[in-house]
């Protein structure tokens, strides 16, 4: 369950907007997080409080396959992104790095920048506390929840290998 303020961005936000290439000299989540979305707007991240929620239009995370993009979002303190849709490689990389992603289609229209949201990713429900509206979405699949529970794919595989050994 997530609870926080919505920060809304537009459609086709690419990985260079999420984390510009000049910051790829590190893999440290805190450093990357400090520059999250700086390709969109310098200082964007200053508005974010830990636990806030990113809301985006279609094709979020298009462009390069850099895994630094979901790491930067997590590093900024954002645990979940709800978007109209995600670009393919970002969708994988997001879960692999431990970032919860929800595809909500046109439901994105029911969220304004600054709205207070409550997100139940397991049940697939977003409650817009500000407007009182409920936005249904596909729940995070059980398998992806297993990956998220272990902080991402590396942890998932590590546990799986240990269990098998």
């Amino acid at each position: 369950m997530f609870h926080g303020k919505a920060h809304k961005v537009g459609a086709h936000i690419d990985t260079d907007a999420i984390i510009p290439a000049k910051f790829l000299v590190t893999t440290d989540p805190v450093e990357l997080g400090a520059n999250c979305m700086s390709g969109l707007e310098p200082g964007w991240v200053d508005r974010v409080k830990k636990g806030d929620i990113l809301v985006a239009g279609e094709n979020f995370g298009c462009g390069s396959s850099r895994e630094h993009a979901p790491v930067a979002i997590l590093g900024a303190g954002i645990p979940v992104v709800a978007a109209h849709s995600f670009a393919r490689i970002f969708y994988r990389n997001g879960f692999n790095m431990g970032l919860t992603l929800l595809e909500i289609g046109d439901g994105v229209e029911k969220i304004r920048d600054g709205d207070e949201l409550r997100v139940d990713a397991d049940a697939g429900v977003i409650e817009n506390v500000t407007t009182g509206e409920t936005i249904p979405c596909a729940p995070v699949p059980a398998f992806m929840r297993e990956i998220l529970k272990r902080g991402g794919l590396a942890g998932y595989v590590r546990d799986k290998l240990e269990a098998g050994a």
Binding site: S65, E67, I89, R92, N93, M97, L153, A154, V157, L161
Partner: peptide, 12 residues
């Protein structure tokens, strides 16, 4: 095609 962490997991 997949990203590097995915490929590492797939190899394992």
């Amino acid at each position: 095609g997949l990203g590097s962490t995915d490929i590492g997991a797939a190899m394992a």
